[in-house]
Amino acid sequence: MSDESRPWVERLTHRQWKLLALAVAVAVVVSAAWLWIATGDRKVSYPVVAAGQTYRTPDGAWTLAHMQTVEALPDGYEPVKGAVFVIVDVQADLTAFPVGGFCNWKLRAGEYEFLSVVGYLPKDRKTLTTCQPGGTGVISTAYEVPQKLLSSVDGVVLATKGQPTTVLAGRLG
């Protein structure tokens, strides 16, 4: 009797070890695929502009100038216990920046991201703290960061309208 004319149940039991090996292989592949996909879930990955390089978009150009720590903000505001302020200066060319556009800044320290301090006023009052159409010069922002995370600070995250969120890489000076 040829194999094809045998009942399929008989064929299945005749090849049971091959079937088991196949099933185990399929299960391992599916498990690996699931784990690979799942570990990437909800992890956001931004494009990174290397330290010292300029990030150019149709709306403007930004270069991370320097980052430094300070014990208190210019208006005397001190950080909470166990934290310091990090001042970030970004050289920006916003001549083409549109009305209604926006820039959101966050400081990145490894997996951590810190929002900028609301109400921060730089020592030089002419320094910008937000993206303004037609403005050119330094945009300065401040962040309150736990002292133990300072060594992980590796750049500033910039989100602008219509462009992918991008990291301007840099280290504390």
Partner: peptide, 15 residues
């Protein structure tokens, strides 16, 4: 053996 194989295939298909 064939039971485990078939149930594993069903599981893999589900996932």
């Amino acid at each position: 053996a064939p039971l485990l194989a078939l149930m594993l295939l069903g599981w893999a298909t589900h996932q």
